[in-house]
Design a binder for these strands. Structure first.
Lengths: 246, 246
DNA sequence: GACCAGCCTTCCGTTGTGCGGAAGAATGCC
DNA sequence: GGCATTCTTCCGCACAACGGAAGGCTGGTC
């Protein structure tokens, strides 16, 4: 029955953070009565909250428990000073992400006012092969895992989105050599990103950061600043036993 | 049985973000077999993750769902530019919090390198009456709710921590008049905070921000900057129907 | 190398808790 | 006022969750 509780929580998305009881029932496929009961129990604990209009939303208590995730806010807490430095120095969007299967999950995103707009937000996911952070993470991931990722279907956003496994393998080799991943126009035609891996104890790559700049900009100009921030965070994590990815 | 699943999640704390199976069983009072089964189901979904040493921790998937909480990351996402402005201009610690019962929950905290150290982190809680953000929130809360809060036992941190209901009532009146809450030496003897309410659609107070400075500083000097940031965030939230507190 | 303590995993008989259809209340729209 | 939709409550039923027992695994001690 645990699965049902989690299905209810999984019904909420970034696009629809507030749902009616009936809508939750529809999305989870559970009978209305069952949904009513589960939602009531989740609300009593604080995992869900009910607004004035009768719509349910994720509650503060769940956010608090979620905030204990070492790979979530735990990571961003320690990375934050370096992200802010990079953000201040470059005046561009800065992102921090971890690998989860074939996707990256954005743990933090510092948007810049006049910068090119980006579609990620904290908590959102994108395919690893289509992002600077993802390429930086895959370049240092277990080769078996990389092959699994490349064997799965690719998701396309623009005509520049990578879709051939061999091109990705080649690019990952370049990333390993240069230490940075440059991803051009894969998500939006107007932007590119420069990503670098972040290491924790024993040198394992546990996260990546990237800066997102307009396609007209020279990405190589940002490489020193991105690498400096990534190294700063890596040093900050050096004493921590933050676990590696699968 | 929903309660058991949530009890398992509730076993994790900021002090102990990683737990063994036996420890989870101990903390929740559940038999080992039951704990094993529930933890396995939570891990299969991604709400928990198991590290190499066999310890469990809150998983990314739960953080992602938690990130959908409008009163959590939803709020901070929109507040962030103003928090960063305040942070940059003042070079002090900046916090964003919401009221939950008799406590405030910190949704964001921007620490400053050379600033007085503070004990809150995103996801942590403190009594509302003992903090700048809490006083700013209570000043504009439903009077019945305020009386409930004042009727409960007070938690003391320093000899300056407020513990008399009448003094709090008086102070809340001042906060309503001046628009800001100054909380001196209530949590740590070396610091004080300046808090201001943040309003959403229809003028309801839904959150508060504060700046934490050394006790030697003149708190009134920060009032204009704090109010400006609070008003900026309030305007940013004006178009949103972010719900009010209970 | 043997032994022990502590932790974790698997099995399986038992039972009580979760299930969900039915009926009705509430709300908003025409 | 009638209707459609959503939400709430009741309660008989059955099966999925329960958890003790047994055993495996690991690391430390002698």
């Amino acid at each position: 029955m645990t699965a049902r509780v989690l299905d209810v929580l999984g019904a909420f998305t970034a696009a629809t953070p507030e749902l009616s009881l009936t809508e939750i029932s529809r999305r989870t496929g559970l009978p209305l009565t069952t949904t009513h009961r589960l939602v009531g129990e989740l609300a009593a604990w604080g995992a869900l909250e009910r607004g004035e209009g009768g719509l349910y939303r994720v509650g503060l208590r769940l956010w608090e428990v979620g905030a204990l995730a070492p790979r979530g806010l735990g990571l961003r807490e320690r990375a934050m000073p370096y992200l802010e430095d990079l953000h201040e120095v470059t005046r561009e969007n800065v992102q921090l992400a971890v690998l989860d299967g074939a996707e990256v999950v954005y743990v933090e995103r510092l948007a810049a006012r006049d910068a090119v707009s980006i579609r990620s937000r904290a908590g959102s996911r994108l395919p690893a092969t289509a992002t600077g952070v993802g390429l930086a993470l895959l370049a240092h991931a277990d080769p078996e895992h990389v092959e699994k990722v490349l064997a799965a279907p690719f998701r396309r956003f623009t005509e520049r989105t990578l879709t051939e496994p061999d091109r990705v393998r080649h690019l990952l080799g370049e990333v390993r050599r240069t230490g940075v991943a440059i991803s051009e126009q894969q998500i939006e035609m107007v932007s590119q990103s420069v990503g670098a891996p972040i290491r924790a104890g024993q040198g394992r790559v546990v996260a990546a950061l990237s800066i997102v700049v307009p396609i007209e900009a020279n990405p190589h100009a940002y490489v020193p600043a991105v690498l400096a921030a990534a190294r700063g965070i890596s040093r900050a994590l050096g004493a921590s036993a933050l676990a590696t990815q699968p």
